[in-house]
């Protein structure tokens, strides 16, 4: 019985592979050619750790909650339909704030930094994905195709930054309201930050500067610690920041070339 199952699996796979792949593969159609996009745009984010820490310190003092979600995280959750579950072990979180402290006894100051998908130039998750459900766009954004993901979680193992969450439950169970502009995931697939790809595409089509939800919220309600932009454009704000600051990439030794840059660590 099993060998028949296997036989069907193999012949079915061969047939499907030969006939169906070119027709149903979810391909992104660009108005511009991928080479053009690659030459023109590469999205990245810069984080001012000093401002981020200031905002978090104020917020924690005000609310008395050491695990308070700052505006950027709240906005991200709301914008991208990131569900809220009681159990931290299985609660998906695209953006989270981490306490950073040097491991020394002399009165260490606590800094706060946001953690999110680094949209690496050489993303390990894309490297290991069985089905190419994780893929990198020509403009550098790393995305997950929910319809292709088989939920093997190999990418979560491979990601050096813990950026990915698995949907142990149907995300709708953990949502109060749904943003219809962002696709809904289902139980059993992996998800992560997309740099608000829907906003990016919309803005690019209109010829505007894209602003992800977290960056918008940070400007409006926070200290403006986050800057998003095109690192290939020498005039962009992010390019200016990269030029004028010492920036740090997380786990740069791995050669993944992350595109979230941290500046002003230690508040120079």
């Amino acid at each position: 019985m099993m060998s028949r199952r296997k036989f069907l699996l193999l012949t079915g796979a061969a047939a499907a592979g030969a006939f169906l792949t070119p027709q149903i593969s979810a391909r992104t159609h660009f108005v511009e050619s991928p080479e053009d996009v690659k030459a023109k745009r590469r999205w990245g984010m810069a984080v001012d750790v000093e401002k981020c820490t200031e905002c978090m310190e104020e917020l924690i003092a005000k609310t008395g909650n050491p695990e308070v979600k700052p505006p950027c995280v709240v906005a991200c959750d709301k914008e991208n339909n990131v569900p809220e579950f009681e159990d931290k072990r299985i609660d998906p979180q695209w953006m989270r704030i981490a306490k950073m402290v040097i491991d020394k006894p002399v009165n260490p100051r606590e800094f706060y930094i946001p953690l999110l998908c680094n949209h690496c130039e050489h993303p390990p998750c894309v490297q290991v994905c069985l089905t190419m459900a994780s893929f990198k766009r020509p403009d550098g954004i790393v995305e997950v195709d929910m319809h292709r993901c088989i939920g093997c979680r190999y990418c979560m193992i491979a990601c050096p930054y813990g950026a990915r969450s698995f949907n142990f439950h149907d995300p709708r169970e953990g949502l109060k309201e749904v943003n219809p502009n962002v696709q809904m995931r289902t139980e059993g697939v992996v998800e992560k930050c997309t740099f608000c790809v829907h906003r990016v595409d919309e803005a690019v089509a209109k010829g505007e500067e894209p602003v992800p939800a977290c960056v918008e919220a940070c400007k409006k309600f926070g200290k403006g610690a986050l800057v998003f932009g095109n690192v290939k454009d020498p005039e962009s704000e992010i390019s200016k920041i990269l030029r004028e600051n010492i920036v740090v990439q997380l786990r740069a030794n791995l050669g993944t070339d992350p595109h979230v840059f941290y500046t002003k660590l230690g508040g120079e």
Partner: peptide
């Protein structure tokens, strides 16, 4: 593998799509 993956009815994608840089693939 089938029991471990989250989306069993996407299982065939592992056979249909091949990623040359993925060892699992």
């Amino acid at each position: 593998i089938a029991l471990d993956i989250g989306k069993l009815y996407h299982f065939m994608n592992a056979v249909r799509y091949f990623n040359p840089t993925s060892i699992f693939s």
